[in-house]
Design a binder for these strands. Structure first.
Length: 422
DNA sequence: GGTCAGTAACGCTTCGGCTG
DNA sequence: CAGCCGAAGCGTTACTGACC
């Protein structure tokens, strides 16, 4: 067998033609057999799955007319080589789902600072923010480079400018880094999605590798962590794309999976085929624009945010010590039917020393008495505020005994079930 | 597949309020 | 006044998940 051909090191007639759209995911794995497959079968299935993945290193297409380009970038000459730039200004009416992008411009950074648990941000303006996102040749730690840098900022008229810089060749990296340095000089606040962990350290590594001064660390608003605090209870996963559809109400349709991005760039480098990169470029632009929309929402959340998300908002405000805002958010969440907000509001009342209202909210959660933390709060209030030790004692026994009873019953039922199936 | 900010769950300490 | 309780803050540790 020709293993090189089989494993994709050489082109085969079965590979997709260069210009075929390549965004479709690989076909789903075949349904698993009733019996667990042995290790050989598992390896065969894995190999089949790998071989079915789209490949991008097809033979070079016929030389394209150099005057035509599938990618909407303008070539600029710089002292450090060519720089490929795309610059778009979004109209003020531009929305991402329900959220007008320019709402971020007037976003209250006091609120964003509380959400980010970073008081420094309150002094800054979104007008001085740079939203940024990179597309790279892989994850950090493996010599990855950022071949596409997407940036967005508001100009003096409050319009969102989106700029993208592309490396048509890795050799052009110094020009890209210098352009980024220039943009950073006009920036007082960085905004990213997981950029504190991924994009920013990776870019700093690239400055080192290119023997350039590392830009100074700027205040950094990483929306991933705010997203988790607000939406995790409702959504579970908090990827940017999930927030875009479930929080902003926008579906970008066909999109590139992040894990496919490195292969698409490698394909571009080997063949010059720009088609596969077009969707990466669009994906990158959407990412920075969506960040701006998220900032708009987080800066003015009360009218537009989902009730369940306002519970997370209220909890974060409480954690940041903004008790009045926390109470307002919990009230609004309850108006929207999110009864989980009772727990947060009770905690807020307690933190303010309003034990009567704390008791009222905690008692309204009587359905949750199997929650030991809630029973503890009620026991404290019955003992020290209501002065009813008997009731407090009941609270310490009640839920526990019920939970234990339920656990014992379940254990017995499962044991019976196990005996039947033996 | 590497990285790392953030989180949760601890234990420990300090401080202030209440009670007998 | 001593003793108890609760709240809050701090440090440690182990773990999670999102980025390409």
């Amino acid at each position: 067998m020709d293993f090189k051909r089989k494993l994709g090191f050489l082109p085969t007639p079965t590979m997709p033609p260069v210009n075929v759209p390549v965004a479709s995911p690989p076909p789903p794995p075949s349904p698993s057999p009733p019996e667990p497959p042995n290790i050989i079968e598992q390896l065969r299935a894995k190999m089949a799955e790998i071989l079915d993945r789209p490949r991008y290193h097809t033979p070079p297409a016929a030389p394209a007319d150099p005057s035509e380009t599938a990618l909407p970038f303008v070539r600029l000459e710089t002292p450090n080589g060519p720089l490929y730039r795309r610059h778009v200004i979004l109209p003020p009416s531009h929305h991402v789902g329900r959220i007008p992008v320019d709402s971020a411009y007037s976003s209250r950074t006091e609120l964003l600072a509380l959400l980010a648990l970073d008081p420094r941000l309150a002094e800054l303006r979104v007008a001085g923010a740079l939203f940024f996102d990179t597309e790279t040749t892989g994850l950090a730690g493996a010599g990855a480079i950022a071949f596409l840098l997407g940036m967005a900022w508001f100009d003096a008229d409050g319009r969102l400018n989106v700029e993208q810089l592309l490396l048509r060749s890795p050799a052009d990296e110094p020009a890209l880094l210098d352009a980024f340095t220039e943009r950073l000089a006009q920036t007082e606040l960085l905004v990213s999605y997981n950029g504190k962990t991924f994009d920013w350290p990776l870019l700093k590594t690239r400055y080192v590798m290119n023997r350039r001064a590392i830009p100074q660390d700027l205040p950094h608003l990483d929306l991933l962590h705010i997203g988790r605090r607000l939406h995790r209870a409702r959504l579970g996963a908090c990827r940017l794309k999930t927030l875009e559809s479930e929080v902003l109400g926008f579906d970008r349709g066909v999109d590139v999976a992040g894990a496919d991005v490195p292969a698409r760039y490698q394909h571009f480098l080997r063949t010059g085929d720009e088609q596969a990169l077009r969707e990466v470029v669009e994906h990158n632009a959407w990412d920075v624009v969506s960040m701006a929309a998220l900032v708009g929402l987080y800066g003015e959340p009360f009218d537009l945010m989902h009730g369940e998300d306002l519970v997370g908002f209220a909890r974060t405000m409480k954690r940041a010590g903004a008790l009045a805002v926390a109470e307002r958010a919990a009230d609004r969440a309850l108006e929207l039917g999110a009864t989980r907000a009772l727990r947060v509001r009770g905690d807020v009342h307690k933190a303010r020393g309003d034990r009567a209202r704390a008791l009222s909210d905690f008692e309204a959660l009587a359905d949750d008495l199997d929650d030991p933390a809630l029973r503890l709060e009620l026991a404290k209030l019955y003992e020290h505020f209501v002065k009813d030790p008997a009731r407090a004692l009941q609270m310490t026994e009640r839920g526990t005994s019920e939970a234990e009873l339920a656990a014992v019953k379940r254990r017995e039922r499962l044991q019976r079930k196990a005996r039947k199936t033996d």
